[in-house]
Simulated scan of single mutants.
Amino acid sequence: MSNSPDDYDRLLRSNLNRVFNERDAAKRADAIAELFVETPVMFEPTNIVSGRAEISRVAGELLQQFGPDFTFVPVGSAVGHHGLAHLAWQAGPKDGPIAVTGADVAEIVDGRIARLWVLLNAAA
């Protein structure tokens, strides 16, 4: 992966769609193996998650908690350079109101996500 905006956009959109919107644990694990370094770290507002298996577990529990129609949708395109990328998103039921908005900020190493910060916007 180069440092082009298209590469950052592809990587962070794939993370949303193939990890945080994927309900099949095996498919999610395959995506994480492709998109993340061997020992990634994810920083949530109230938790720090280490390792691919733990990131998969957290994503799966999140989807289970919010129900079968809950979906993360990118807002705009990811931007980034020099190994740092940002993608805004919104989430909620597919046909319902937006429940939460935020952004993912990722440190990219050798074309994969090494560290991921999940930032949540304050409720309106």
Rank of each mutant, 00 (worst) to 15 (best):
residue 1 M to S: 14
residue 2 S to A: 13
residue 5 P to I: 12
residue 5 P to K: 12
residue 5 P to G: 10
residue 7 D to G: 09
residue 8 Y to W: 08
residue 9 D to Y: 05
residue 10 R to I: 00
residue 11 L to I: 10
residue 12 L to T: 01
residue 14 S to Q: 09
residue 14 S to R: 08
residue 14 S to H: 04
residue 14 S to W: 01
residue 15 N to G: 00
residue 16 L to I: 11
residue 16 L to W: 02
residue 17 N to Q: 13
residue 17 N to K: 08
residue 18 R to C: 04
residue 18 R to V: 00
residue 20 F to Y: 14
residue 21 N to L: 05
residue 23 R to C: 11
residue 23 R to P: 06
residue 24 D to L: 07
residue 24 D to Q: 12
residue 25 A to F: 00
residue 35 L to T: 00
residue 36 F to E: 01
residue 37 V to S: 10
residue 37 V to L: 12
residue 39 T to E: 14
residue 40 P to I: 07
residue 40 P to H: 09
residue 40 P to K: 05
residue 42 M to P: 00
residue 42 M to N: 01
residue 45 P to N: 13
residue 47 N to Q: 15
residue 47 N to T: 09
residue 49 V to H: 07
residue 49 V to W: 06
residue 50 S to W: 02
residue 50 S to T: 12
residue 50 S to I: 07
residue 51 G to R: 04
residue 52 R to Q: 10
residue 53 A to T: 07
residue 55 I to S: 01
residue 55 I to N: 02
residue 57 R to V: 00
residue 57 R to P: 00
residue 58 V to H: 05
residue 60 G to I: 03
residue 60 G to T: 07
residue 61 E to M: 11
residue 62 L to G: 10
residue 63 L to W: 06
residue 64 Q to K: 14
residue 68 P to G: 05
residue 69 D to G: 13
residue 70 F to Y: 15
residue 73 V to Y: 02
residue 74 P to V: 04
residue 75 V to S: 10
residue 76 G to R: 09
residue 77 S to E: 13
residue 78 A to L: 09
residue 78 A to T: 06
residue 81 H to Q: 13
residue 83 G to M: 09
residue 84 L to I: 11
residue 85 A to H: 01
residue 89 W to S: 03
residue 89 W to Q: 03
residue 90 Q to L: 13
residue 91 A to R: 03
residue 92 G to S: 08
residue 93 P to A: 15
residue 95 D to R: 11
residue 97 P to M: 13
residue 98 I to D: 07
residue 100 V to H: 09
residue 100 V to I: 15
residue 100 V to R: 10
residue 101 T to N: 06
residue 101 T to I: 04
residue 101 T to L: 02
residue 101 T to K: 14
residue 103 A to Y: 05
residue 103 A to R: 05
residue 105 V to E: 09
residue 105 V to K: 04
residue 105 V to I: 15
residue 106 A to D: 01
residue 106 A to V: 01
residue 106 A to N: 02
residue 108 I to V: 15
residue 109 V to P: 00
residue 110 D to L: 08
residue 111 G to D: 08
residue 112 R to N: 05
residue 113 I to R: 02
residue 113 I to Y: 04
residue 115 R to W: 02
residue 116 L to M: 14
residue 118 V to K: 02
residue 118 V to G: 04
residue 120 L to S: 10
residue 120 L to T: 13
residue 120 L to I: 15
residue 121 N to G: 12
residue 122 A to Y: 05
residue 122 A to K: 13
residue 124 A to D: 13
